[in-house]
C-alpha cells in the first residue's frame, strides 16, 4: 500500500535546510493525496516538468516530503531510522530515466548489486542474474561495461537491476524511452508479470500509445499537483 497524505515537496525549503537535493527552481509538488493498493498498477503521466520524477523520488526515498506524510509498503519512512529506510529501499526497484549504471562494473555485477546488498548466496545470484539477462537478450553481454553497451542495452540492464530482487514496489521513469517497440512490449510484459505476482508497479511515461495498449489507472500531474487519478 502506498498512501500520500497532503504531501508536498518544496525544493527551496530543502535548500534552506542545507539539504540541496534537487533543483531549487523546480516547482516541486503540492498537496498530493492518493492511495495505491498493494499489487496495484499505475501509469504516471504529465508534461515535462510536471513533477513525475519528483514524485517517484519521494517514493524511492531519495527525497523527504517537506509537508504532509507518506506511507510506503505499510511503513512511515519518517519514523524509520537510516538503517530502516535502507532496508525499505531494498524492497523498491527503480528504473531511472538515465539508467544510473555503475561505469566500472560489468553487466553482471551491475545487475547483481541489489542481491549482494541483500546478502544473497553467490551461487543463487549467479543463477538469477544470468537467467534474467538471458531473458532480456543480454546473455552475451555479461562482462561488458556500460560504455560498451548501446542505449537500449543499458536500459535493459537497468531494468534487470530493478527487478532482479523481486521488489514489492517497482518504479520506472520512462523505462521504454530507448527501446524499440518489440523490446518495449517485452519489458511491459515483464512488468505485468511482476505485477501479477504481487509487485506494485508505477511507470512514468510519455508514451500514450503504450498507455492506451496497456490500460491501467493513471495518476496525472500538472505543475506539481495531482489533477487526475483513475
Amino acid at each position: 500500500m502506498i498512501r500520500f497524505f497532503n504531501t508536498g515537496l518544496d525544493y527551496q525549503r530543502l535548500a534552506g535546510e542545507r539539504r540541496p537535493l534537487g533543483d531549487v527552481d523546480h516547482p516541486g509538488l503540492t498537496d498530493l493525496s492518493f492511495t495505491i493498493e498493494s499489487g496495484g498498477f499505475r501509469w504516471l503521466t504529465g508534461a515535462s516538468g510536471a513533477g513525475k520524477t519528483t514524485l517517484l523520488k519521494l517514493m524511492y526515498l531519495a527525497l523527504p516530503p517537506t509537508s504532509g506524510r507518506i506511507e510506503l509498503l505499510d511503513s512511515d519512512p519518517s519514523r524509520l531510522d537510516r538503517a530502516g529506510r535502507a532496508l525499505l529501499r531494498r524492497r523498491i526497484g527503480v528504473v531511472y530515466q538515465d539508467f544510473r549504471l555503475l561505469d566500472h562494473l560489468n553487466t553482471f555485477d551491475n545487475v547483481a548489486l541489489p542481491l549482494r546488498l541483500a546478502r544473497r548466496k553467490e551461487s543463487q545470484i549467479h543463477a538469477d542474474v544470468t537467467e534474467l539477462l538471458r531473458w532480456v537478450g543480454l546473455a552475451d553481454r555479461l562482462t561488458h561495461r556500460p560504455e560498451e553497451l548501446s542505449g537500449g542495452e543499458q536500459q535493459r540492464v537497468a531494468i534487470c537491476r530493478a527487478v532482479v530482487g523481486r521488489p514489492s514496489l517497482l518504479l520506472a521513469d520512462e523505462p521504454t524511452g530507448n527501446l524499440d517497440d518489440e523490446q518495449a512490449v517485452r519489458l511491459l510484459h515483464l512488468f505485468m508479470s511482476l505485477n501479477q505476482l504481487g509487485t506494485t508497479v508505477i511507470i512514468a511515461s510519455h508514451n500514450l500509445s503504450l498507455i492506451e495498449r496497456y490500460r491501467a489507472p493513471v495518476l496525472e500531474l500538472q505543475h506539481g499537483r495531482l489533477v487526475y487519478h483513475g
Binding site: Y60, A62, R82, A83, A86, L87, L88, R89, R90, R91, I92, V94, R100, L102, H104, L113, P114, L117, A118, R161
Partner: peptide, 14 residues
C-alpha cells in the same frame, strides 16, 4: 556511485 548504491538500499555502514 555512492548515490546509486545508497538508492539500492545500502546501509550507511555498507
Amino acid at each position: 556511485a555512492v548515490d546509486i548504491i545508497h538508492g539500492l538500499g545500502a546501509r550507511d555502514s555498507d
